[in-house]
Amino acid sequence: MNQPTICITVPILSLESTVWFSVYGFGWGYRAFELSRHTVCESLGARDMSEQQILLAFQLGKRQILDAVLQQASLCYHGERILLPLDAKSQRMRTDAPKMPKAGAKEEAAHMENWLANNSTIALQIN
Rank of each mutant, 00 (worst) to 15 (best):
M1C: 07
N2R: 11
N2C: 06
Q3Y: 03
Q3C: 01
P4T: 05
P4M: 08
P4W: 08
P4K: 07
T5D: 00
I6L: 04
I8K: 00
I8A: 01
T9M: 04
V10Y: 14
P11V: 07
P11R: 01
I12P: 01
I12K: 12
S17A: 11
S17V: 09
T18R: 15
V19L: 07
F21S: 00
G25E: 07
G29F: 02
G29T: 02
Y30L: 13
Y30T: 10
R31G: 11
A32W: 00
L35G: 04
S36G: 15
T39R: 10
T39N: 12
C41Q: 14
S43N: 15
G45H: 03
G45A: 04
R47Q: 09
R47Y: 06
E51A: 08
Q53S: 14
Q59H: 10
Q59S: 05
L60E: 10
K62F: 13
R63W: 01
Q64A: 15
L66R: 10
D67Y: 09
Q71G: 02
Q72D: 09
Q72M: 14
S74T: 15
C76F: 04
C76D: 10
Y77K: 15
G79N: 09
E80K: 02
E80I: 13
R81T: 05
R81A: 09
I82S: 03
P85D: 12
D87Y: 07
A88Q: 07
A88K: 14
K89W: 05
K89L: 03
S90E: 05
Q91I: 11
Q91S: 08
Q91M: 06
Q91Y: 12
R92H: 11
D96Y: 01
D96C: 01
A97H: 00
A97Q: 12
M100T: 02
P101N: 12
P101A: 10
A103G: 07
A103E: 14
G104T: 00
G104H: 13
A105Y: 02
K106M: 08
K106T: 05
K106E: 09
A109R: 13
A110R: 01
H111I: 06
M112A: 13
M112I: 13
E113A: 13
E113Y: 02
N114G: 07
N114F: 05
L116F: 09
A117G: 15
T121H: 15
T121F: 11
T121D: 13
L124I: 14
L124A: 04
Q125E: 02
I126V: 15
I126F: 00
N127L: 08
